[in-house]
Nucleic acid binder design. Structure first.
Lengths: 235, 235
DNA sequence: CGCCGACTTGAAGAATTTCAAGGTGTGTGG
DNA sequence: CCACACACCTTGAAATTCTTCAAGTCGGCG
């Protein structure tokens, strides 16, 4: 509302809730204005696809709000979820090639989208942004590799226990008490993450409930009753 | 044989066989000299460990020669190989944290090792190096995610077929004819890559041989007789 | 109230692991 | 040069785990 000089158009970065955590966090005011110019906000409904598997990589994005899944399917239609993207996470494949996985919103979501070629050019000119992206990519690679151990070497019980513990941790980071939380995912989605069938997931859940490790107050809610025992089963 | 001015100490980069493919490929002569100063060459014998799982990340490295595995183990001792590092690949975890996997030489190997803090500092000051590292890390993440589909959703036959095809491709990149090649790995190591037991790997190999898809002239050698059929089985 | 989708449960079947021998090939010492 | 040891691989049979197929059940919503 004031002096000459503050007449620049409002930037959606100004009100961005992940502004301090996403890869843009190290950028100056001016740099942000440029980035703001090449990006746009986009709302996604739950179930909406942002990127298709095998598409030429034409866009990249930052997650502002909501949850998205990265996934790939076998030719006979079974799906494997390769990762879940949370607010402030980066999506897509900069610098060439195609995106070897699909990206779909699991909940209603908001993302900040860039044309890949615009983003690539901007990134190459802004080493601090590239550095952030590198750190994020390295961290994501570590998480992904850790998940390979689960997929390759754990049985159903260990997979479920690991999954629930991680979900609890995530929920408590987001403000939960670390015991009761909401799975944001259907049984089928959990199965697709763990490389199991929906029936096996369901049976393991029921078993853990009957053994008093967890409670299942409603379909998507979980309460951890005996964290230690759960950690034992996750190994 | 020379003039004054060529008295600089010989740099191991000068004779480096991966010089044009590794992350150092974009560096100038001077930059290379600095990097040369903070790194050192190291020979590893097959089976020798370079980095231990869970260690604080104190060093990073470039692979010059040989094959190394990245792996992680469950508490009951079963191992999952998370990746294989080839010449020109980068190893280790720059920018903080611990290394969540072990690195061990599969063959005699030569690596170019840096103290992590030296490398981190150098990298931050050399955006072109960071850019190379970013591209490499993104590519590795893609490969790793692709592997998750194999681990989570493929059966033993599909896993083996995929593995053999990929091994053949790698061998032909390195100069093979794409049909006959040497597995550089033991049956147990293949099992650890595919998330199977050694017996299952052995049975699948025998089955494919008896079906005329492949031949196994010696323990570690493979000849692909019917690539198309193999591709079918990999889906 | 009844329908629908999501979830659970059961029983049978298939795939993989586990346990247990039995080969094969290479290198070493007699 | 042979024999033996050892590591690595193969094979067989039983056991286990997970999937598949097939009914249910539950909970919300028109």
């Amino acid at each position: 509302m004031d002096a000459i000089g503050s007449t620049a158009p409002a930037s959606f970065c100004d009100t961005c809730t992940v502004r301090n955590r996403a890869i843009c966090s190290d950028l100056s005011r001016d740099e942000l204005a440029v980035l703001n110019g090449i990006g746009r906000q986009r709302r996604l409904s739950a179930g909406e696809q942002l990127i298709w598997e095998g598409d030429e990589a034409v866009l990249v994005a930052n997650v502002v709000e909501g949850l998205l899944k990265l996934s790939s399917s076998t030719s006979d239609g079974r799906e494997q979820i390769l990762g879940i993207a949370f607010p402030s996470d980066f999506l897509g494949r900069p610098f060439g090639g195609s995106t070897p996985y699909g990206v779909e919103a699991l909940t209603d979501a908001q993302v900040c989208v860039f044309e890949r070629k615009d983003f690539d050019r901007f990134a190459k000119e802004h080493p601090r942004l590239e550095h952030k992206l590198l750190e994020r990519t390295l961290a994501e690679l570590d998480r992904t590799r850790k998940w390979m151990l689960l997929l390759g070497r754990m049985n159903a019980e260990q997979k479920l226990a690991s999954f629930l513990l991680q979900a609890a941790d995530r929920a408590s980071e987001a403000g939960g008490d670390g015991r009761s939380f909401d799975l944001q995912l259907s049984r089928q989605q959990i199965a697709d993450i763990l490389g199991l069938t929906i029936e096996t997931v369901s049976r393991q859940m029921t078993k853990m409930k009957s053994q008093g490790l967890i409670d299942l107050p409603s379909r998507r809610a979980v309460t951890i009753l005996d964290r230690e025992a759960l950690e034992d089963r996750a190994e």
